[in-house]
Simulated scan of single mutants.
Amino acid sequence: MQLMSSEASSSTTSDLQSEYDNEIKEFHFHLYWFQNNAASQASAVKLRDRILELAKQGFFQVVPLKNGVNTSPRGPHPIGSYEVWCAREDFARCYSWFILNRGPHSVLIHPLTRDEVADHSSRAAWLGTPVPLDYSNLRPHLDHVPSQYPELGLGYNAPAPNN
C-alpha cells in the first residue's frame, strides 16, 4: 500500500476545492402550457398552486414564480410558462415531484451557470416533449454566476463545505 505524500495530499485538496467551486448549485424548472388553451393553462395554474402550498408546508424549499406566470412568450420560452427555482439542496425532491406530477406539461430543467445558452440547450434536460426555445436573447458568458435568493442561504449562497 502506497501512502500519499503531503505534496500529493495538498494537490488533491486543492483539486477537490476546485471541484466544489465549479459545482452547479442552482437550477430552474420551467413548466410549459399552451397559453391559448384554457384547460392547459388551468392545469398549469393548479400545479403552480400545489407547488406554492408544498413550499409553504416545508416539503421542499423552492421559489416559484419570481417573474410571475408568463401567459405569452418571454425570453427563450415561446409559449406559456413559469419558472421554479431550486437549490441543489432540494434538487432531488423537486425533480422527483415534477416527474410524478407534471401531468401533460413539458418541463425544462437547467442549471444556473455563467453560460445561459449552454444552460438552456446542451446542459438542459426535459420531462415530456421538448419545446423549441429562442436562444437569441441569452448570453454565452455572464460576468458572475446568476445566484438567486441569497437570503435563503442555499445554492451558491450556502456555507462552504468543510473539507
Rank of each mutant, 00 (worst) to 15 (best):
V62L: 01
P73L: 04
N36C: 00
S72T: 14
T12S: 09
G58M: 07
S10Y: 00
K56R: 13
E23H: 08
P64V: 11
A42Y: 04
A39P: 00
G75T: 01
L54F: 00
T12H: 04
A38F: 06
Y20K: 01
L65M: 12
I51H: 04
H77I: 02
F34C: 07
A44S: 12
S40V: 05
A42L: 08
F34I: 14
P64W: 10
V69E: 12
K66Y: 13
F59I: 05
F59K: 03
V84E: 11
Q57R: 15
D21L: 14
S81E: 12
K46W: 07
K46Y: 07
A8L: 09
L54K: 11
P76K: 02
V62P: 04
E19Q: 11
P78N: 03
S11F: 00
S81M: 05
S10C: 00
D15M: 08
S40F: 01
L16I: 10
A44G: 09
H77K: 00
S10I: 01
R50S: 08
E19T: 05
N70S: 13
N22G: 09
A8I: 08
T13D: 14
Q57S: 15
Y82D: 07
G75P: 06
T13Y: 09
Q17A: 13
H77V: 03
G58W: 13
P76L: 01
G68P: 03
S9F: 15
I51N: 01
G80W: 05
W33H: 08
Q35I: 01
K46C: 06
Y20E: 07
